[in-house]
């Protein structure tokens, strides 16, 4: 680390002579040790998944959820310092509810990502605070259905509102990843945490930008990717946690929910099988090497 000893990395909000904020870079280091988190943007919904490392046998299995619901249609998962993640989620919920009280409608995923990006960025500006030690993935589905204004009475004309334009942009999936600097991008497939490199490589194989991956198939892929990304820390046990949001006519009816246990188990079973398959291949590969 070239930064150490120069003194420019001891305080947040301070630029080094070459224009870097080292405290933010160090916060990223905290993220890089966190459990792998991924998000996938499918044709008809989004999926969030995370690898929850079991740090103690005494932890209650199935408890301690890491994926949070922020508004009915939006979920958040983060890698890095877990308490920072909870702070982030709590802010996200405040933003979603403040939007609702102003506009009487759910916040679009994009707008939420923007507001949270600004919030996280503010923690890079002052020496009296430290940056967030997390990278968060925010995913949701902006409804494509006709929605009422919260609290409205009546439905307007029975024949429906006139003059609608066919194919006018309506809702859809949204997936964003927010870094400790406050920087955020929209993603087809997002990965962060310890196994992000492996996870990214797998995500890239999926051709997500074509927008053809079905939600159920995405669940299987997400589970498999978490298992692949876990390979490097094989010695540690982990729990897979997954959630999804579909369109209004999909399985979750536009809501952010935990993936049902039956589907989760099926996805895990397939993921393990796929891993075994890979092990055999690599096993034979080593055999060949030995022959050489």
């Amino acid at each position: 680390m070239t930064s150490i000893g120069t003194g420019y990395d001891l305080q947040n909000s301070v630029f080094s002579p070459d224009g870097r904020n080292f405290q933010v870079e160090y916060a990223v280091k905290a993220v890089e040790n966190g459990g792998t988190c991924i998000g996938i943007r499918c044709k008809n919904g989004i999926i969030l998944a995370t690898e929850k490392i079991i740090t103690s046998k005494l932890l209650r299995p199935g408890a301690n959820r890491r994926i949070a619901t922020v508004d009915r249609n939006i979920g958040v998962v983060s890698a890095g310092l877990v308490p920072d993640g909870r702070h982030f989620v709590s802010r996200a919920r405040d933003e979603a509810s403040s939007w609702r009280s102003t506009y009487k409608a759910p916040i679009p995923v994009k707008a939420l990502a923007g507001r949270l990006g600004s919030y996280v960025q503010a923690y890079t500006l002052y020496s009296s605070v430290r940056p967030f030690g997390i990278t968060a993935i925010v995913g949701g589905w902006d409804t494509d259905a006709e929605t009422k204004v919260d609290g409205q009475v009546g439905i307007g004309p029975a024949v429906g509102s006139g003059g609608k334009v066919d194919g006018a942009k309506k809702g859809g999936p949204g997936l964003y990843m927010i870094e400790p600097s406050g920087l955020y991008w929209g993603y087809y497939g997002a990965a962060t945490g310890k196994g992000r490199q492996a996870a990214k490589a797998e995500l890239e194989k999926l051709d997500l930008s074509s927008g053809t991956l079905e939600l159920e198939a995405g669940v299987m892929e997400a589970a498999r990717i978490i298992y692949v990304a876990h390979e490097d820390s094989k010695d540690k046990d982990f729990e897979l946690e997954m959630s999804w949001v579909s369109s209004v006519d999909g399985p979750t009816k536009g809501r952010h929910e935990q993936v049902p246990s039956s589907l989760l188990e099926e996805a895990e079973r397939r993921a393990k099988k796929a891993m075994e398959g890979e092990d055999e291949e690599t096993g034979s590969g080593e055999g060949e090497k030995m022959e050489e």
Partner: peptide, 23 residues
């Protein structure tokens, strides 16, 4: 108002501050 996504809509807000969507 009119927007491409929702077409034309009329809302009425009478004195108490309730919101009514109407033809």
């Amino acid at each position: 108002g009119y927007d491409q996504r929702n077409g034309g809509n009329v809302y009425s807000i009478p004195l108490g501050g309730s919101l009514h969507k109407q033809p």
